[in-house]
Nucleic acid binder design. Structure first.
Lengths: 212, 212
DNA sequence: GTAGATACTGTACCTTGGTACAGTAAAACG
DNA sequence: CGTTTTACTGTACCAAGGTACAGTATCTAC
């Protein structure tokens, strides 16, 4: 048994269940696994707390309430019967260290436990790709654009700001008291300097700086 | 040896090095490991390609050029002597499946190989937290986004997303396998429904929902 | 079965954006 | 002093975006 005596009992693998029993694959993966009700956590000191997310319930609430009652170094692992990216993200942002299918193979479960036990986070490929897609572009463009923003002249910066607000050339011309032709000259210069192809991408690049 | 004969030689663990030799911990982790020069990849068929990122060099370029020459199912793992989040992000967005310290323990290396070998991605806790911070907000606000965008049809939402990325009508048409004319129909409908006048303002509106 | 929503496409036309080629004028720097 | 940088403008042309008017094909709901 992976149970040691301290001030309180330390349990290596605790499975939080709404109802029902431990699945056979969990026991297969961790013979020392024990089941516990949602309101029974925090009595012993758990190392890894596997939480089965009930269908159609908010993962944030459940995980949040559990997290408040357990030791700070207890790691939460969310188990989902029907995993999807949104739920996974919710679980991870609620403080879970991993998010996987309830019916994952014992080998997979052990791998997750390994990673999480060493302080890591475990995320499936699908969700990971999504995370990367959404924030890599954002962060990846940052150095590129940022490095180049300081080479802009004062006027170019003004025009860039206006474009980033969604203004048309005509509007920008009126704002700056110059002709539309001159605005075009500035935008052309901006595209060149910032390596973008049109005003839309310029706007996105400039705005990307604001966030992050 | 983890080497099998096929049409070409298949190597399980290949380490791409600028100069020098295999580190002892690499050999300890993978006795079958072989070293290869950056321009020597793709000759054999590698399964896992460990790439040591040279100091102060752009990971994107190196990984990009390597990725172009290897088999599609070859997994790249970036090794960094001085890991940091920015470099890690660069490596991952350049197509690496993992990013870890060059001098990680053999156990850690094997763990990474395990995860990546099963199609997963491996990211350290620090970088992961950063990714979560920047994109959790994003998806956490999704319900809000949906509130404003719930009047949109499925197709309209797809087009809106593409516009928000800065894609042109032609590009969107190709992506969705429809004519440019149909894209225009969708965008026109989007302008109307969301009360914006052109694609630039649509992009800003959609993106504004994401951050906040 | 008919009305409405969704998705798709065509022709035509006008507007806006972007670029090529060209030039003036003032300030800045060596 | 001359060269470079910044700011500005003109004419002209083409591509992309956007709109008007119109039509077909599903599918769902009453």
């Amino acid at each position: 048994m992976g149970v040691r005596k301290l001030a309180v009992t330390v349990i290596e693998h605790s499975f939080v269940l709404q109802s029902g029993e431990l699945l056979s694959r969990w026991v297969e993966a961790f013979p020392s696994a024990v089941a516990v009700a949602a309101d029974g956590v925090g009595v012993s000191e758990e190392l890894l707390l596997w939480v089965r997310i009930p269908q159609g319930q908010s993962p944030e609430l459940l995980l949040g309430s559990i997290k408040r009652r357990v030791n700070v170094n207890t790691k939460l692992i969310a188990l989902s019967d029907t995993p999807n990216d949104d739920e996974g993200l919710a679980c991870l942002s609620a403080g879970a260290s991993a998010y996987i299918n309830t019916h994952a193979t014992p080998e997979a479960l052990r791998q997750v436990a390994e990673v999480v036990g060493q302080g890591g986070l475990w995320i499936g490929a699908s969700l990971m790709q999504r995370l990367l897609r959404s924030s890599v572009a954002l962060v990846a463009t940052q150095p590129t654009t940022k490095n180049k923003l300081h080479v802009l002249t004062g006027r170019e910066r003004e025009v860039a700001e206006a474009v980033a607000r969604g203004d048309s050339n005509k509007e920008i011309a009126k704002q700056l008291n110059i002709t539309e032709r001159t605005v075009k000259a500035h935008t052309a210069s901006l595209f060149e300097k910032l390596g973008v192809r049109d005003r839309l991408q310029l706007a996105l690049a400039v705005n990307a700086q604001r966030y992050l």
